[in-house]
Design a protein around this nucleic acid. Sequence first.
DNA 1: ACCTGAACACCGTTCAAGT
DNA 2: ACCTGAACACCGTTCAAGT
Lengths: 224, 224
Amino acid sequence: MMDEPRSRRERPAKAALTRGGIVAAAAEVMRAEGLGRVTMRRLASELDTGPASLYVYFRNTAQLHAAVLDDLLGAVDLSPVDAPGDWRDRLEAVLTSYTRVLFEYPTLAQSAVTARPSGENYLRLVEGLLALLDEGGVPPGQAAWGLDLLLQVATATAAEHAGGDDPEQWDAVGAALRAVRPETHPRIASLGEDLLSGPGPARASWGIRVLINGVLATPRTGGN
Amino acid sequence: MMDEPRSRRERPAKAALTRGGIVAAAAEVMRAEGLGRVTMRRLASELDTGPASLYVYFRNTAQLHAAVLDDLLGAVDLSPVDAPGDWRDRLEAVLTSYTRVLFEYPTLAQSAVTARPSGENYLRLVEGLLALLDEGGVPPGQAAWGLDLLLQVATATAAEHAGGDDPEQWDAVGAALRAVRPETHPRIASLGEDLLSGPGPARASWGIRVLINGVLATPRTGGN
DNA sequence: ACCTGAACACCGTTCAAGT
DNA sequence: ACCTGAACACCGTTCAAGT
């Protein structure tokens, strides 16, 4: 009886259900326990309701995750877009910031490979990247498709880290590559460790430069 | 009583549990009902046993899926590796074959972004791609990292199709891009539909050429 | 070693009913 | 419209026990 007001404070009776509130709660759960715990049921109990209530705001779990990702994308540093300097360096800086954000939540990156977000932060990022490609003189057609490639590689690079925490799966590939017989797989054997992810960030930034150079050099029509 | 022999035929009493047998059953379930049904429990009941039995052969569900993927990779056409002709065209042909295989099971492609297979078919594919890069004079260091990029893009391209069956999520992106205001997002607005996946295969092959050109043009050390 | 039944601790999604 | 309890139909993984 006496602690009624106290319990009200700890859990404010019932926060009204809003899309933003759900996303905020989801982001918190993800930060604390990983994307695997960001489930409809878990969130519902966090918000003092039943899972069915969340379906008013999200068609399914994948869309909930996409909304969480868009929320996170607010942390991407877009300041290089309007800064002075070489456009390639600035493009690389923005994508590196994007990758850094995703590196924090590799499982979210994995889901982003299929379920692209479509919120305002994502749109801002896309617009910024297109502005830089435009500044670099990349023809519109190549910019449109190249943008996709750039995000794909940046996202996949972060997603690859998802299995990385767990040495079991990761080392299965490593073990297989090391165990290869030089007679049957000479090139794998000779490249050895170099095939495995070396210094992650260096690879990512090399990959971005490869893409920039390639996009500039590859027209969308005609032979090669 | 009388149909004992008949039921024996339909379900041969009990096939001995082997890694290969499990993978074969898994591939069948996937073909028939999609990767979502390839679960430990479902497979166990398919094989007339309990789910715990499968953990003798696979550490977890992700590794089971990786094994199924490797199995599927047996269908990739590696004949262009030893064929005559321009190495770029042949490299593109192999990757196109790889993409085609994954396109059949986009959800498997999605899981492949994180859980790379490490079976013999995967190793054969990697060796073949490295042979072509070598033939093209790509320096070993660039080949090692470039290989990763090529597989990443090919895999992600197929994985993107995973959401594609479901117009809900897919159209969310489309709708968002179309609804954009030209005042705030001029470049998105001007590129319009071109940003969305046009003719999938054409994009994939352009992406591969971009990567080949980029890898050739981008040394692993030094400035840009 | 290989195999298993049973248990623990969860899931997504829908539906009929309420406000 | 928004919200919900309850139900349906599933999951992964571990453990103690058996062969």
